[in-house]
Design a protein around this nucleic acid. Structure first.
Ligand SMILES: [Zn+2]
Ligand SMILES: [Zn+2]
Ligand SMILES: [Zn+2]
Ligand SMILES: [Zn+2]
Lengths: 135, 135
DNA sequence: CTGTACCTTATAGTAAGCTTTAGGGTTTAT
DNA sequence: ATAAACCCTAAAGCTTACTATAAGGTACAG
């Protein structure tokens, strides 16, 4: 009574049964209790936990990192803000590096693309192709 | 005489034998002529081609897209700047979308991270953990 | 009692871009 | 002649985050 089966948890969290079982296999969800017939039985706590996972994913954390965050979350009183903030700042640095890398790509590609006429004549003089070819 | 074996091509392009064979398997490099003993024999043209591939990779093109670019490059006179520029602009859009996505992540994470004290006391009140938990 | 929706497991497949392994020939220097 | 360095193929493995398939058992409505 009050228990959720996997499909219901999936619906409530906008995921699906396979993903939830996958998260369990990766340790992101604890093994839930089972019904007599072996069905997984969840509580509201798991709804919150899945939402936590999804939010962390949207922040750019990998499942492995989310696993760490979850362990911190489980016994908050035993862990410090310092530990949590370190993880977050590390991730921020990674995101920043990716952004910089993409901006480098973008600028380089934008430059050779702007120079290309984009016309219907032959691409022999194409700045894009030629830039990729240049020594 | 004048031919390069795979290891030499790898050295000249700062790649390795396996990667070059992999590129061949993906159609990025043509099947080269072979020595009597079956060794791949390359010319300077392949050095240029591998450099093309590497530059395109640095611009963010996938191997599949590079394959397309290479076909365009091979007979430039049969293709138009318009075709090439279309590929480039499509890729620019993709890069832009990734940058925006990462910036969204960064801003959200930055906000909850800035609010975290990062101190040595228990994480019960941690803004990071709590933000990930919040409904 | 039968259909349908739901659940179970284990295993394999997907994407990208390689890397590694296994097992076996070739070239070159000493 | 032999060791080191080099090459070959085919196949498997790696990473991330799932998704799909096969071959079932269970719950419940009509
Ligand atoms: Zn042009
Ligand atoms: Zn052009
Ligand atoms: Zn704090
Ligand atoms: Zn904190």
């Amino acid at each position: 009574m009050g228990y959720l089966r996997i499909g219901e948890l999936a619906r409530l969290t906008d995921t699906n049964n396979e993903t939830l079982r996958f998260y369990e296999s990766r340790g992101l969800l604890e093994e839930p209790r089972r019904s007599d017939s072996g069905y997984r039985l969840y509580t509201q706590a798991e709804v919150l936990r899945v939402h936590f996972i999804l939010r962390a994913k949207r922040m750019g954390f990998s499942l492995k990192e989310i696993d760490e965050l979850l362990s911190l979350r489980v016994d908050k009183e035993l862990n410090t803000c310092g530990t949590v903030k370190e993880l977050a700042e590390h991730k921020l640095l990674e995101i920043d590096m990716k952004i910089k890398e993409l901006n480098r790509m973008k600028d380089a590609l934008q430059q050779i693309t702007d120079a290309c006429c984009g016309g219907e004549e032959s691409a022999i003089h194409c700045t894009i192709l030629n830039a990729l070819d240049a020594e």
